[in-house]
Design a protein around this nucleic acid. Structure first.
Lengths: 138, 138
DNA sequence: CCATTTACCTACTATGTCAATAGGTTTGTT
DNA sequence: AACAAACCTATTGACATAGTAGGTAAATGG
């Protein structure tokens, strides 16, 4: 299951996409628009900066900003950064894990197929696709 | 991520499929073949019985048995029983949960699409498909 | 230059789930 | 009666999740 880390991070990225006009968007604004604790977002945003998904600027007029164009991010990249892995099972998540049952496992095929499905789904979605500005009813 | 509950339960179902010739398969045998603690399996198997995936018989000659043909089970049904839900996010997992951001959420579509993908994948797979006896290399 | 605004940093915590383990009771078979 | 099996209740250690609390550092505006 996707945790708040991944889900909130994605919403931050969408929020930043929608507010690209401003140079830097303060976390305070994002938090209030998204209805998420600013304190908690600080933790997530730190990881996002060190993963080079966004950049921060201090002081007055500071905040956060995307460091690429929205179409240059995939949802998969964002989620995988925050969640650590998108793999549905331990044996596929950890590359170093060499399962002793590997050659005889009846379920490995199933998990591998599922893993590919997840990967292709999320890496096939661009941030720009899901962060479209909403058209309001007349 | 699919926990051991779902993964082990699936392996129990596969084991039972492969040993359909015997009337009832003792948990002891399943545990040793699968290399899983019998004590832990007891807990999982209890849930499987109450969900009517399998039936148990006590006493000597007892054990567990499928209550339908392998082609009448879907992997989705087995996993969903054990995991509680297959939904990737809380807002879709809990039917009673009425998210206040539902109408304005930018990510709901994404999660719904992903949820359908997961559901279709696992409910499209039958137990009989993944529990085929392995053909050995000559 | 100083107050303000912002990011950035370290630490702590309550809660819950996971993955078992331990020990006992009941039921059916031989 | 002995045994083998399912069935039942309770407990536990480890870890992740989803935060909270309080402070420091840097940039800007007046």
């Amino acid at each position: 299951m996707i945790s708040t880390k991944g889900r909130y991070a994605l919403r931050v990225m969408i929020d930043l996409t929608k507010n690209q006009n401003e140079d830097f968007v303060p976390l305070k604004d994002i938090a209030s628009r998204q209805g998420i604790s600013k304190k908690y977002l600080e933790i997530l945003v730190r990881d996002m900066v060190s993963a080079e998904l966004i950049v921060g600027a201090r002081g007055k007029g500071g905040g956060y900003k995307l460091c690429r164009k929205p179409e240059e991010y995939t949802v998969g990249e964002i989620l995988e950064t925050m969640e650590g892995t998108l793999s549905p099972v331990v044996c596929l998540a950890d590359k170093k894990f060499n399962c002793p049952r590997k050659s005889s496992c009846d379920t490995l095929n199933l998990w591998t197929e599922f893993d590919d499905l997840i990967h292709n789904f999320f890496y096939g979605k661009k941030l720009s696709e899901i962060a479209v500005k909403q058209t309001h009813e007349p």
